[in-house]
Computed example of a mutant assay.
Amino acid sequence: MTGPIVPAESSGLAALSGSGVGRPGGTIAVVGSAKLDLVIRQERLPRPGETVLGRTFDRVPGGKGLNQAVAAARAGGRVAFLGRVGDDAEGRQLAQTLRPESVDTHRLITDPTRGTGIAQVSVLDGGENAIVVAAGANASSDWSPDDEALLTTAAAVVAQLERPVPLVRRAFEAARALGVFTVLTPAPVSADALALLPLVDLLLLNEHEARALAAQEDPLAAARSLSPGRIVILTRGSASTLVAHEGALVHDEPARPAAAVDTTGAGDCFAGTLVARLASGDSFKAAIGAATVAASLSVARPGAAASMPTWVEIEANLGGNEAFTG
């Protein structure tokens, strides 16, 4: 441990939990990726030049943005998705995935010049995964007046780095101008993300991403170094989740035991649920508890977007544990 845990509520999170900047009950605008996941379950990854046999193959909706949008909607959020797909069967499948979730897809634009994004996902025994992404239409950096108009009623703007950094910057600059809370999950992590940090209110990342972004080997020290000016949430797989703010570790959320089947999308589940509960007016403690439970439920199921739990399921698993209901 790199410093004491000092219980504290962040003024930044209070913007979502109370009145004012966060617009509780407002739209969660997800500026994100939508991809079709090509999933092979297999014993292990191949070595260079080696072929291994897979057990099963599935084509399932995914992409970090789409996953987060579904997670937020199922956790009770009012969600709009700002994304790009190709003019192909895969793009139509992704749009059909979002509509039954009550996600607003008016800003899910079909790009006739690019195909829909694809992710090649290897799911290993024990639930761990390895993913290779072809961006396709997600590579578009277009930002329109209609996109910006959507933010006028937003509680939060959520983005990842499966869309171009210049696009995320424009979305966050527009959000800041309108007093809208900004959330970044910097994956896939890159040095370009550092330039976005002054526009970020909540940075949600794992240990690998924290080390890479802060250029520090100790992920806890990395989280603390990234936290001045914003809230940093460090997820650590089966270990507890830590929260840093203004250079101090302010919260340590116990892990929720789970029998992992597929960890694909677990971080997206955490992010979407957390923001949905904050936008609904929950306290930070309650929201991070709900997100922890949601992620534990998601890894016990196969798939990414399909594994996201509903608020009824999350709430049913919150009861009787003060660590998750405070």
Rank of each mutant, 00 (worst) to 15 (best):
S140N: 04
I118A: 10
R84H: 13
A119Q: 01
R74W: 07
A75R: 11
G136A: 08
G49Y: 13
I118V: 15
P46A: 13
A139Y: 01
T116M: 10
G77I: 10
P100A: 14
R107I: 02
D147E: 04
A155R: 05
Q96Y: 02
L94E: 07
S144C: 03
A154D: 00
G54R: 10
P145R: 05
V39R: 12
Q68P: 14
F57S: 07
D88V: 06
R44L: 09
V158F: 04
S141N: 05
A156D: 04
L124Q: 05
G62C: 12
G91H: 02
D87T: 01
T105R: 04
T152G: 14
E128T: 07
I109A: 09
G115C: 08
G77Y: 00
R163H: 04
Q42F: 00
A95S: 00
T56W: 08
A149E: 11
G91I: 10
D87A: 15
E128G: 11
L45M: 13
A154G: 02
T51K: 10
A95P: 04
K64R: 11
V132W: 02
S140H: 06
V123C: 09
R44T: 13
G127L: 07
I109T: 14
G117K: 03
N67R: 12
L94I: 08
Q42A: 14
G136K: 05
D125P: 06
T153D: 06
T152D: 11
I40M: 13
A75F: 12
G63I: 12
L66F: 11
P61F: 13
T153V: 12
T97G: 02
G65R: 07
I40K: 01
I40T: 15
E128Y: 07
A89S: 10
V103E: 06
G62I: 12
V123A: 08
V123E: 09
K64V: 11
D104C: 00
L150K: 02
T110E: 11
E43T: 14
R41Y: 07
Q120T: 14
V70K: 10
F57H: 09
V157F: 04
G83K: 09
A71N: 11
D111I: 06
L82V: 13
R78E: 08
F81Y: 11
T97Q: 10
D146W: 06
R92G: 15
L151G: 01
A75I: 09
R55C: 03
V60F: 02
E90G: 04
V70I: 15
V39I: 15
G83T: 05
S102I: 01
L150P: 01
A154L: 00
S144V: 02
D88Q: 10
E162N: 03
A130E: 03
A73Y: 04
N138G: 03
P164R: 03
S102W: 03
P48A: 15
H106D: 12
A149L: 11
A80D: 00
G91A: 02
T113G: 13
E101H: 03
P61G: 12
G65E: 11
A156M: 08
P100M: 06
V103M: 02
V121E: 06
L94D: 03
V123H: 09
G49S: 13
L66I: 08
D88K: 10
A80S: 15
G76H: 10
K64F: 12
